[in-house]
Nucleic acid binder design. Structure first.
Lengths: 325, 325
DNA sequence: TTCAATATGTCAATCGTTTGACATAAAAAA
DNA sequence: TTTTTTATGTCAAACGATTGACATATTGAA
């Protein structure tokens, strides 16, 4: 690979001059500028970003830790994050923690070693303190960690309310909520909270089941749901904490010959792209994934540039009513 | 951030010694090793991987260019690629080209500038020559570019045959195939080829529609499919070139009151995780995504290490018969 | 006692770029 | 003609590590 020296030699100038045209500083005549460009062209020269990073102590890299990019919600989130990062010259390193505490830690160390400019955390199993002394531009999804670290979330409570309210309003008599693991202390837990409060308030019978800790694997959903429907065959409304869970529910309902929405109504959460393609199309609570992704990138950049930023970034959700309710 | 010098100072040794314990070379007594470790601990020292990369001229970085990580197939692929890369100490930079020729090129330049050790290309719009003089460890998905560049694909022809054969065998009289854009010269085109050949061979009426060039956006699918069904209302079998397309078909069928599989049978391609959750669960051609991802990482590493590797890596597919046929 | 093995240090170059300080020369403006 | 401005060059340090060559000191074994 050619270096700046090769370019200088070929163009008949010094590396200082090449650097000057490369970085647009100082005086440069058009003639030499052209000579330099031509030499770069000829050699197919690409400035070594590693050397640059080393020197300027900025890598233009953002680390993204999520459970897994193969989950539709996180896939979409990652897609938008990369999109907005790329717009402003940042690259993104993906890390799939699989909600494994050890991997999460490993990834954080790795990202620090690689001197990423900031870390976007969409996966949370670690103790709060471990983040605290991270001393790094960070933004978290769905988790409040300390007074300083900014976080992004959807209006979980509002979403939970919208979903639960819809079920009640549609005449459900006994409703269930399937949530992620509640020990994880995520802000998503507020969805459950809203569910509980609202059903109590309306005197509606309700049950909650949650997924196991550390199990992101999707296979357990099925057993969980079948179990739920066996124990409570009279459930006629379900609020699932993600569209993927809702998909399981729809399917199991189909196999169990429960008509949707006639026998059981279902509301999901996220509004992943495929939600509208389910049969029947899924009623769900839409998180503004794109806006949240954009915000995450912005929060990192603001911290890098030492600009002021909001600590609380709660995005409004929207009820997307389709045909499962 | 502390440097190796700070560690040396605190441990009361020279940087050479610290480097020696860091890299396990030369003689080191247990005592000093401990002193050094302790100093690293105390300072919360993380060796600067950027400096290391610069020195060893290896970044331990793999670039991954795909249309978008938010597409389930590529999301799953990316997930596995990151998984296997991480196992052997590689990191992955994701690039979502959105099948945009300009972005694709930009990303390649960017990845080269960042001196990634290799590039995995799952997005192809560029001219072949542009890759040829890339002179870089590369592996492509679903495209044969030159004599030297290794590629990975599923047995597209076999898959197309399996799908088409199934439809015919199930008694379909007029079958359709929805494919990606055929101008892209992907090996995936062999699916269409198999479809055409087999339907001709069996004397079955058939139609093919393909998506537009450069449009990865999913929204066009719907119009396309509705259009197809309007023009050919007597279609009773469909082979979709991806599970996402199949999902559209299932849904539109649902809205048009065509029963699946009674009125129309559908076969997808990929076997994304959600395919089994469709209603009815989708019959599809399974690509061994995980194995393909693993293979991609391996091919990069082998090229980096100058070990021998296979140029052709065609993976067997499998018919997963569920309930849409 | 002597030699080899072990343990550490010193020094400096290298990876590829940026940048500041300074010098010099040509072109343009006064 | 003199002074500025513009254009380039020279030199060297810095970013944070690794590494080779060599020196020296302490052990332990023969």
């Amino acid at each position: 690979m050619p270096t700046i020296k090769d370019v200088a030699r070929l163009a008949g100038v010094t590396v200082t001059t090449v650097s000057r045209v490369l970085n647009n500083r100082g005086y440069i005549s058009d003639a030499t500028r052209q000579k330099v460009y031509q030499a770069m062209e000829e050699l197919n020269y690409q400035p070594n970003e590693i050397a640059r990073s080393l020197h300027r102590r900025k890598s233009k890299l953002i680390g993204l830790i999520i459970p897994t990019v193969s989950h539709p919600f996180f896939g979409e989130l990652a897609g938008f994050i990369e999109y907005y990062a790329h717009l402003i010259g940042y690259k993104v390193l993906i890390c799939n923690s699989l909600l494994d505490r050890k991997k999460e830690k490993e990834y954080i160390e790795m990202l620090k070693s690689n001197r990423v400019d900031g870390i976007i955390m969409g996966s949370h199993t670690l103790e709060v303190e471990e983040y605290m002394n991270l001393n790094y531009p960070i933004v978290t999804f769905d988790r409040r960690i300390s007074e300083e670290i900014p976080y992004i979330s959807s209006d979980n409570y509002g979403g939970g309310k919208l979903a639960t309210h819809l079920l009640i309003q549609k005449g459900c008599k006994k409703i269930a909520h399937i949530s992620g693991n509640l020990q994880l202390q995520l802000l998503a837990n507020k969805r459950s909270q809203a569910f509980i409060e609202l059903s109590k308030e309306h005197g509606i019978e309700s049950v909650i089941v949650e997924t196991e800790l550390n199990v992101f694997d999707i296979t357990q959903y099925e057993a969980m749901i079948r179990n739920l429907l066996e124990k409570h065959p009279d459930i006629d409304g379900v609020f699932a904490s993600s569209d993927v869970m809702a998909a399981y529910f729809i399917q199991i309902g189909y196999f169990l010959n429960r008509r949707i929405p006639e026998d059981i109504k279902i509301v999901g959460y996220d509004d992943i792209k495929l939600a509208s393609l389910f049969v029947p199309p899924l009623t769900t609570i839409r998180q503004p994934i794109e806006e949240m992704a954009k915000c995450a990138v912005e929060l990192i950049v603001r911290q890098v540039n030492e600009e002021p930023f909001e600590r609380e970034n709660v995005f409004p959700v929207e009820l997307i009513e389709r045909l499962t309710t």
